[in-house]
Each structure stands twice: as C-alpha cells, then as structure tokens.
Design a binder for these strands. Structure first.
Length: 475
RNA sequence: GGUCCCAUCGUCUAGAGGCCUAGGACACCACCCUCUCAAGGUGGAGACACGGGUUCAAAUCCCGUUGGGACUACCA
C-alpha cells in the first residue's frame, strides 16, 4: 500500500480557530497513525486577506499544539513551495491544460452581469448558479467579445454526470448530474481561485487523505472533477462536522475567544486542548477519556468520527485542563505558571514558586487561576478585599495581635508547629478552625480564599506572616 | 428557493437488530472528607425528536414529518 499523505490547508485569515485546530489534529493523527507524511499547505490565494502576522500566528499555534509537519512553507519538501500564493505559475499551467483539453473555457461575463442574472434567477425562484452561456459561444460572439476588449475569466466545465463522494465520515454522498454549475478557476486578473488550487495541489502533492470541514463537502465533487480532467488520482475525503457553541450556532466570535492563541493566554495546556479536541466528534470506546499523544496516534481512526456537529464545552475543557495540571511535576508546572504571574506584575522567586506548586495544583482549572492564589507570596501589598476586611474587622484587633504573638513564639517554623499554634489560638477564643483561622487567613493573604493556611504561612516565612498580622491588628 | 449534511441525558458520547429496565464523562443535586477554596469519594436526577413501515424482535434498517446547520461568489 502506498504511503499515506495527509494535509492541513489553512487560510491564514486570522489566528487559528479551535475548529481548524481540530481539523489539523485529525489530519495530523491520521498521518501519524499510518506512519505517513503530514503536509502543511497555506491557502493564501486571496492575497488581499492574508497578513504575514496571520501566517506566522498559524504556524505558531500548530507548533504550540505539538502538531509538527514534515513538509511545509518553512521546512520545504519535494513539492515546494507550500504557499499557494507562490504557485500561481503552476495553476496557470494547469488551467491551460484544462482549456486545451476542453475542460475549461473563457468566460466573458462581467461580475456585474453575473450578479444581475443571479438576482433575476432568484427573483424567478430559479437556481442562481451560472447558466453556462460562455461555454457555448459561437465564433462570431467570441470574436465580438474580443474586439470589445472584454476581460475574461476561466471557467471549469462541470461534466454533466452524477458524482459520488465516498466520504470517510459521511458515507456515500450523491450529487445528481447538473446539480453543480460551472465555476471560475482563474479570475479575470489571472489569479487562481481556490477550487483550482486545491485540486491541483492535492493531486501534485500526492495527497491521499483530504480531511477538512463539512462546509467544503459540496466542493468535493468539483475537486474530483478537476483532478479527473487532469488525469490525476483521487484522494479519499473525510468531511468533519462543524463545531458549534452552546447555543448550537456555529462557533464564532460571539462565543468569546475561540482561537488557539486565546486558550493559550487563558492558561490552557496544549496537551489538555489536544485531548479535549480529540474527543470532540471522536471516541475510542465507551470508557476512555484520557489519551496520551501516543495513545491518540495508535487509536485514532477518522472513520470513527461521528457525523453530527459537536458543541464546544469550555467547562469540560477546564476540567480536563485541571487533570493535566495535576499530572505535571512541580518544576514543569512552575515554569508554565511563571508567565502568568509575571504578566500580573509580580516579581517571582523561582524556588518559592516551585515549592508552592503542590498547594495550588488541584485548585487550578487554568494557569491564570494561580495568580490570585499565589499573589500573597510575591508581594507584600496584601490590602484585604472586601470580604476579607469584614472578617478581620469582626475578629477585632486583639485577636490578630494575639495571633501575631503566638506565631512569633512558635519554635520551629514548620506547618505542624504553625497548625498547633493556630489551633491553640482558636481554642482559647472558643472558636473552631473555620471561625478561628479565617481572620488569620484574611490578614495574611488578603483574601478569604487561599491555599491551605499553615502551608501557606510556612512558605511565606515567619517575619512576613507576623508583620501582616500586626499590620492588620493596627488598622 | 435549490442541493447537501445532521438528529441518544443540558453537553461530549457508547450503541453497527436481541447483551439496553440504554453505558461512561463534563455540568447539576445530595452526602462524606475538610482550615477557606479546590481536589477526592459515594449516591442521585437526567436522553433514543415525532409518525409510519420492515422484522418474532428497532436507539439501531427504510420512508415521511418536524427541527437544526452548511453550501449556493471572479471568498476560502
């Protein structure tokens, strides 16, 4: 059996979206599962919409997800270049071949005329597609258009036959003869349209599996027709259902930040996002939820992808993220968290940060949540928030002064001794731990929510702890 | 309008005719654990869109209805 070659072909019109990220993942997994090649091809035929920044952002997002490619715009490969904007000569050559073979023709209709006829057809309740008139131009008409100096586009002559797409996800999808109209493959300014570029590139690059969004299902027969007209071999197609939001509408900006970059900045781990995305539309069995990258590669099968659209559930993503956070060792976690603390303007002591990791691991759904939890360690500006202030006030200055004295007198500054001291303090005041410790927590951390108190104080150190208690007592 | 896709708990899904009084996970509720918040443990509520067929037997096959969605460009 020949080698599997799978491609991901993003149009870099912005940062990469989770829907595209999932498409990339499934393509990558298919390539890796078969020990094949993963090709990255950038579809920037509409040059006006593509910025260099969007291009780089796309590559960066894929790298962050760990979806490395074997051939692509930066690494090259046997079918370079891998940016469609650099392949125009190739498309022209193939458009010529199609015209020479009678599979394509010059279309002299202007965009204005086309639009007008579309509107009319719609008004009459007829299908609005191109009527194919330039396909049957007489020599005289053709000459007349040329004399007028009219610009022409190249249109592909869609064969009048029934097409069947053998889709790996959808099964057999039929398109009746005549259902698809002739389409433009070269604009009147000579630039190629993606319907040509995709087919030509998939053919030339030897792509065996085309995995992409369901929105492109209707273009599959057109791709097939072009490849057949060119005498190429057809790839297998797999069209993935769309990802929708909680309102069942296709995911868009309205659903908040859905780009890979946004999740990264929100403190989602790439391994968690990959695992979550893998399960959005695909499953291995009725039990398994967590998959290592190797397990995913071993078990993934695109034909097991379900054909109904999946709703993106950020609660589940965050739950899964927490699972991966808990699985990280302290060193690794600290290295990932430091970016977010620094971003909040905190000056971080790496050793202290690493030692704090066990206290916050299971309290973080996202890495950003480490910031409020650990802020008290990396700044002495712990102005109590509203609820903390209320707790402090209720306890009264005497209680906090007592706390300061008790802790100052602790023999060895470790969590066991601190805990005994806190218990003794609460006991003398006739309070249980909950009531007795909260004022101390509020004074020391500035919040009523914190990592476990004795451990937190141990890390903070005796001096800073006592100073904060005295400051609170003096208010 | 036309073509195409889709339809199991709120969500992601298991289910490829009898194993289903429909399984798991997130979320939700209760309890346990507990210094706050989490995490963890135990338990609970919760679904085959509807209507016809086919069959001894249908969540599973067929048809229709309804409801979502995509496409219908000299965008990708």
């Amino acid at each position: 059996m020949s080698e599997v070659r799978c491609r991901f072909a993003p149009a870099p019109s912005g940062s990469i979206h989770v829907g595209n990220a999932r498409t990339a993942l499934f393509s990558w997994l298919t390539a890796r599962h078969h020990g094949g090649t993963f090709v990255l091809r950038v579809e920037d035929t509409d040059v006006s919409r593509v910025t260099e920044e969007a291009f780089r952002g796309t590559l960066e997002s894929l790298r962050w997800l760990g979806l490395g490619w074997d051939e692509g715009p930066d690494v090259g490969g046997p079918h370079a270049p891998y940016r469609q904007s650099q392949r125009t000569a190739i498309y022209h050559e193939h458009a010529e071949r199609l015209m020479a073979g009678g599979h394509a023709y010059r279309c002299y209709c202007t965009p204005e005329e086309l639009e007008e006829r579309r509107d009319q057809a719609r008004a009459r309740g007829e299908p609005p597609g191109y009527d194919g008139r330039c396909r049957r131009l007489s020599d005289a008409e053709l000459a007349a258009f040329e004399r007028e100096g009219r610009l022409w586009a190249v249109r592909f002559a869609m064969p009048e036959r029934h097409y069947i797409v053998h889709d790996l996800v959808k099964g057999e999808v039929h398109f009746a003869a005549g259902a698809l109209r002739d389409f433009v493959i070269l604009r009147s300014d000579g630039s190629p349209v993606f319907l040509l570029a995709v087919a030509v590139d998939d053919m030339l690059m030897g792509i065996t599996h085309v995995i992409r969004g369901e929105d492109l299902l209707a273009s599959a027969p057109r791709n097939m027709a072009v490849i057949e007209a060119l005498g190429g071999t057809l790839p297998q197609y797999a069209h993935l259902p769309l990802i929708v939001g909680s309102d069942r509408q296709p995911l868009s900006k309205r659903h908040g930040s859905t780009s890979v970059e946004a999740f990264r900045e929100h403190g989602i781990l790439p391994e968690a996002l990959v695992n979550y995305l893998a399960l959005l539309g695909w499953s291995y069995d009725d039990q398994t939820t967590f998959f290592s990258r190797e397990e995913l590669i071993e078990r993934f099968d695109v034909s097991r992808v379900s054909s109904n659209p999946a709703a993106f559930d950020s609660d589940k993503l965050e739950w899964m993220n927490n699972h991966y956070v808990q699985g990280l060792d302290d060193e690794d976690l600290a290295a990932r968290v430091v970016h977010f603390l620094a971003g909040a303007g905190l000056l971080v002591d790496p050793g202290l940060l690493r030692r704090a990791m066990p206290l916050v691991k299971e309290r973080m759904k996202t890495l950003t949540q480490a910031v409020p939890l650990l802020r008290f360690l990396f700044t002495d500006d712990v102005e109590p928030d509203e609820t903390a202030a209320a707790v402090i006030e209720k306890a009264g200055p005497g209680y906090l002064a007592d706390a300061a004295e008790a802790l100052d007198g602790v023999g060895t500054w470790d969590r066991a001794s601190i805990q005994s001291a806190l218990d003794a303090l609460a006991g003398e005041a006739g309070l249980n731990r909950t009531k007795g410790w909260q004022p101390v927590r509020a004074a020391v951390t500035g919040s009523t929510v914190s990592p476990p108190l004795p451990e937190s104080m141990e890390l903070l150190g005796r001096d800073r702890t006592v100073a904060r208690l005295r400051a609170a007592a003096a208010r």
